[in-house]
C-alpha cells in the first residue's frame, strides 16, 4: 500500500487583495481569505489520483504554520486525504523557507513514506526552495516543475514528467522521492459532500516546535513590501514613419517593459 505525504501551505487566496501593513514588512491578514496554495492542491490531487491508480494507499497531509492552517488540513481531508499532521505555532506566520524545510524534515524523518508531494512553490513567498532543502535533509532525490507522476505498482520506482523551456523531461527515479508539482493536467477535485462529513472523523496530529526540539523561527529579512507601480498614462511610440514608430515601440517593450 503506497504511503504518500503531501506538504501543504495555507496562504492568502489568489483572489485576495493583499496589502502591506503600515510597517511595510508584513501583510495585513485580518479579513483575508486563505486557502491551500494552488500548486499544493495540484500535488494533493496527484496523490489522490496515484492512490486511485494503485487501488489503495494512505495519504497524510502535513502543514507547518499558525493556527488558521487547520482549515487547510480539513479541506485536504475533505478532498480525500486520510490523516493530517499539524505543526502549530503562531510564530510560524513569519517563518522562512530554510526554517520550514528544517521543521518538515524533523517531522518527516519519523514517518514512513514512499513519496512526498508538494507544490513547486507557495504563492505567498514564491521561493520554490522547500522541496530541495527538504530533499537534502532527508538525502532524497527531488524533481521540480512536475506535471505528471506515474508510480510503478511495485512501489520501487516512478516516472516523473517535468516541464522545461520548449518541452518536457521524463525522469525515472527510485522511491522514496520528493516531487514538486507545477500545473498538471488534472484540476484539483471538489470535495464531495459525503467526504466533507467524513473528514470530521479523520485524525489530525498536532505537534509543537518544542516537541520537535526546534528553536523559534529567525526574523524575516524583508525590508519592505510595495505594490507594483501603478499604470501610468500610455506611452505612445512616436516617429515620422510607421517603421520609425514600430522601432520605437519595440525599443520600449524591450528596454522598459523587458518583454523580450
Amino acid at each position: 500500500m503506497v504511503e504518500i505525504l503531501v506538504c501543504l501551505k495555507f496562504v492568502p487566496d489568489t483572489t485576495a487583495i493583499v496589502r502591506p501593513r503600515p510597517d511595510g514588512k508584513t501583510i495585513e491578514t485580518a479579513g483575508l481569505k486563505f486557502s491551500i496554495s494552488p500548486y499544493d492542491e495540484f500535488a494533493l490531487e496527484e496523490a489522490l489520483l496515484a492512490r486511485d491508480a494503485l487501488r489503495s494507499g494512505k495519504i497524510t497531509a502535513i502543514t507547518v504554520g499558525p493556527p488558521r492552517n487547520e482549515e487547510g488540513l480539513r479541506t485536504a481531508l475533505a478532498m480525500g486525504a486520510d490523516a493530517a499532521v499539524f505543526v502549530k505555532d503562531p510564530l510560524l506566520e513569519q517563518a522562512g523557507t530554510v526554517y520550514e524545510a528544517d521543521i518538515l524534515a524533523r517531522v518527516i524523518k519519523n514517518l514512513k513514506f514512499d513519496i512526498i508531494m508538494m507544490g513547486k512553490q507557495a504563492i505567498d513567498d514564491d521561493s520554490a526552495q522547500v522541496p530541495h532543502y527538504l530533499a537534502e535533509h532527508l538525502n532524497l532525490p527531488c524533481v521540480s516543475m512536475v506535471r505528471k507522476v506515474e508510480i510503478a505498482p511495485d512501489l520501487k520506482s516512478t516516472k516523473v514528467t517535468r516541464q522545461i523551456e520548449g518541452g518536457e523531461e521524463v525522469h525515472q527515479s527510485t522511491l522514496p522521492l520528493i516531487v514538486a508539482v507545477g500545473k498538471t493536467e488534472h484540476m484539483p477535485r471538489l470535495p464531495t459532500l459525503p467526504n466533507i462529513m467524513k473528514a470530521k472523523t479523520k485524525p489530525i496530529t498536532v505537534m509543537t516546535l518544542q516537541q520537535l526540539g526546534a528553536s523559534p523561527p529567525p526574523p524575516s529579512k524583508i525590508m519592505s513590501l510595495t505594490p507594483p507601480p501603478a499604470r501610468k498614462n500610455v506611452k505612445l511610440a512616436d516617429g515620422d514613419t510607421p517603421e520609425a514608430k514600430v522601432d520605437n515601440l519595440v525599443k520600449l517593450l524591450r528596454e522598459e517593459a523587458k518583454l523580450f
Partner: peptide, 13 residues
C-alpha cells in the same frame, strides 16, 4: 523579488 503571485514586491536585505 515578486511575492504573493506578483501582487507585491519584496525588498530583501
Amino acid at each position: 523579488r515578486p511575492v504573493y503571485a506578483g501582487k507585491l514586491y519584496a525588498l530583501v536585505a
